[in-house]
Design a protein around this nucleic acid. Sequence first.
DNA 1: CGAATAGTGTCTGTTAGACATTATCGA
DNA 2: TCGATAATGTCTAACAGACACTATTCG
Lengths: 216, 216
Amino acid sequence: MAVILTVDVVLLTLRGDELHVALFKRAREPFRGLWALPGGFIREAEDDSAKAAAARVLRDKTGLVPPYLEEFGTVSGPARDPRGWSLTVVYFALVPAALLDGQPDTFAVSRLPNLPFDHAAVIAQVVERVRNKASYSSLPVFLCDPEFTIPELHAAYEAVQGEQVNAANFRRKLEEMGVLEEIKGQTKVSGRNRPAQLYRVAKPFRDRLSVRPRGL
Amino acid sequence: MAVILTVDVVLLTLRGDELHVALFKRAREPFRGLWALPGGFIREAEDDSAKAAAARVLRDKTGLVPPYLEEFGTVSGPARDPRGWSLTVVYFALVPAALLDGQPDTFAVSRLPNLPFDHAAVIAQVVERVRNKASYSSLPVFLCDPEFTIPELHAAYEAVQGEQVNAANFRRKLEEMGVLEEIKGQTKVSGRNRPAQLYRVAKPFRDRLSVRPRGL
DNA sequence: CGAATAGTGTCTGTTAGACATTATCGA
DNA sequence: TCGATAATGTCTAACAGACACTATTCG
């Protein structure tokens, strides 16, 4: 019997101030009816790569092309799938909550339902990776809308890290990095206070993840 | 037809002051006779995971159990293997040159022969990853013997990085990290000069890669 | 004007990195 | 004692992080 070869996607987004993961009710056996990561078999006829398969799965289930999709790694073994020896390539995607618009059900990563296979462990590892990577890169911008304020981005960082980050230093650091581009004249109100300047990611950094040499 | 599922291993070691990769002449088609990365199919009956398959491949071809073996990622697609749609899980291993003892043929990563599949690109990416990772972790200790001097480790760092690192600061940094354990009374001569103190990796860090918060 | 959040300026302890100096060996 | 490399000590500029302060909006 051949190895079962699949891709799974950990789709992360921000709701409130906590990281959420998108889960879907399984339509088929095994584990029909359980919440699980979106995933599926690689289709040789359609997919040009495992990553393309992950993008297709996501498109089919959510209708969106994720702005950020990265391979996490593989999980494999004889016992993780009741159907036999399996290998799954795990991807993670980061999307602004606005893009999802309530389509898939999402769960706070700290309060997950019972999950089949090794999905719980996979999610935990992906979250840890994202946390680590966020601390030395501008990864969390992918959790924000294309146009965002610094306080919004700051909140995204804190949500990902799970700890507070000094707002003043955060702002200064960003400016030094030069990844942000001010949208002149555009501000965003959020209550009865001073509105915040809108920014976007500067051209040279679009689609390219800026990784800083060190520190936060 | 099913997807071709294999593992490949980029085995890196230090010869002289340059990173070398182990290559083997392919015994079978396709590309019989060409130098290529060691690799092979996953055997469902034998292997408990893809990583176990990589370790088995390495053991069969070199007789050694690599002290450091890490997943790099996957490469996949319809065109990279003439036999059909394929997915390869790539691993990289770091071993001290003394362990190899001339068994496999090794090539400086900057002067590789013609390679089949996408092996050339894979090696280039792995080397880049190792370089990056070395700069914020103690990865290069796996390129040294179990007992080593600080100058030896320093040379390993410089070889991996491809650039000079100040020896005095390197030493101080290591001591701050506390990953090294002095082997009291043991020194190693290397010419007509002051012998160097021998060290090993301290117990709490054995098998565990120390990743520093930042800097070199 | 007051409440609230956006944004700026300043200070300080830490540290990476440069460099000078001392130590210890073989020949 | 000389040549060479190991190991230690010192200085400085850069910077992360803490925190005080100013700016701008709404109600």
